[in-house]
């Protein structure tokens, strides 16, 4: 059943509407909310919403409780190909929990949080930006890791990145919900303005794993989706969490170190390494070149042996542009 969470009159005729589809199972149970589209250029979650709704609609007799799907927390941004909330300065994922009597965007953020509070679990799906391709991962702040990592492991991702709790991140949707007792997992995968079907299918399977663990799903769940073949070949088993065929063996970032590589020159990127691949120390990831003079401005080499989980795909770079992130497993 489609429900309207927020409806705000725009200047000329239209309304800004944030809607959700409440899929009610045939049995009572918990409430899982799947949200995406906070950033209008992140579209990987669209396939997940579609596929999840499709599979649930075919098996309502197995659903215990309700799954609420919010495909577009920033509908104006998605429909106008704009990352932010059109006409508003701040990143929409930096204004939560919002302000009840605040400005349009801040009030919208407030209403979203009110609607999600008291869910048994919220899954917030992001897809990088237009510059960087990300492996399928769950991001968890260190203060919530103990509670959330057991759930994160069910989501079929290759990587679980436990990061520091920076003050500025206190204004994200996930933080605002987690500190109020609503468990919220953030998935980051793929790249902006594109849909990666493989990632979407794996995450949907992961959501069914999660629902099984929450006793929300009693149907079959045997799609046998696991890690990418490359990852299985190259990393040891010590960070793996499960031998279940339907649950990928996520790497936990706390078992190693994440290395960042940024451009030291402004120019054009010519790629060499493949995303989601295992690279060795000294291997070329890409070159930054000067097309005028045919010169290489920088050879970007891997500083370690590790898993290339973030890779820039947009070719124009300035000094400082993030090029890659590599996960190095502890020896």
């Amino acid at each position: 059943m489609l429900k309207t969470v927020v409806s705000v009159a725009l200047p000329v005729g239209e309304h800004l509407k944030i809607r959700k589809n409440v899929i009610q199972g045939n049995h009572t149970g918990k409430r899982l909310c799947v949200v995406t589209g906070t950033h209008g250029d992140e579209l990987e979650g669209q396939f997940v919403c579609y596929e999840l709704a499709r599979r649930l609609n075919e098996g309502l007799e197995h659903l215990h409780g309700s799954v609420e799907i919010y495909p577009a927390l920033n509908p104006l941004g998605i429909d106008s190909i704009e990352r932010g909330f059109p006409g508003f300065d701040l990143d929409m994922n930096r204004i939560f929990p919002g302000v009840q009597n605040g400005h349009l965007a801040e009030n919208t953020a407030y209403e979203i949080v009110q609607d999600l509070l008291n869910a048994d679990m919220v899954l917030d799906i992001h897809s990088s930006n237009i510059f960087l391709k990300e492996v399928m991962q769950v991001r968890v702040s260190d203060i919530t890791a103990e509670t959330l990592v057991p759930y994160a492991k069910l989501l079929n991702t290759d990587f679980i990145w436990i990061h520091d709790a920076a003050t500025v991140l206190e204004s994200t949707l996930a933080h605002s919900l987690n500190i109020n007792g609503t468990k919220t997992l953030v998935v980051e995968m793929g790249i902006g303005m594109r849909i990666t079907r493989e990632y979407g299918e794996r995450l949907v399977q992961g959501i069914f794993n999660l629902m099984q663990s929450m006793e929300m799903w009693s149907g079959e769940n045997d799609s046998n989706i696991a890690n990418s073949e490359e990852l299985n070949k190259t990393l040891s088993n010590k960070t793996r969490n499960s031998s279940e065929p339907t649950i990928a063996n996520s790497i936990l970032s706390t078992n190693g170190e994440v290395h960042f590589m940024n451009a030291d020159a402004s120019g054009i990127i010519i790629p060499s390494a493949l995303h989601s691949s295992f690279v060795v120390e000294g291997e070329r990831l890409c070159q930054i070149v000067d097309p005028f003079e045919g010169k290489v401005l920088q050879d970007i080499l891997s500083p370690v042996d590790g898993f290339l989980f973030t890779l820039r795909t947009y070719p124009i770079v300035y000094e400082g542009s993030l090029i890659a992130r590599i996960y190095e497993e502890k020896k």
Binding site: V8, A9, L10, P11, V12, L16, H103, L104, T108
Partner: peptide
Amino acid sequence: PIVSQNTM
């Protein structure tokens, strides 16, 4: 010159 609802 134009406003949305909930505009300061």
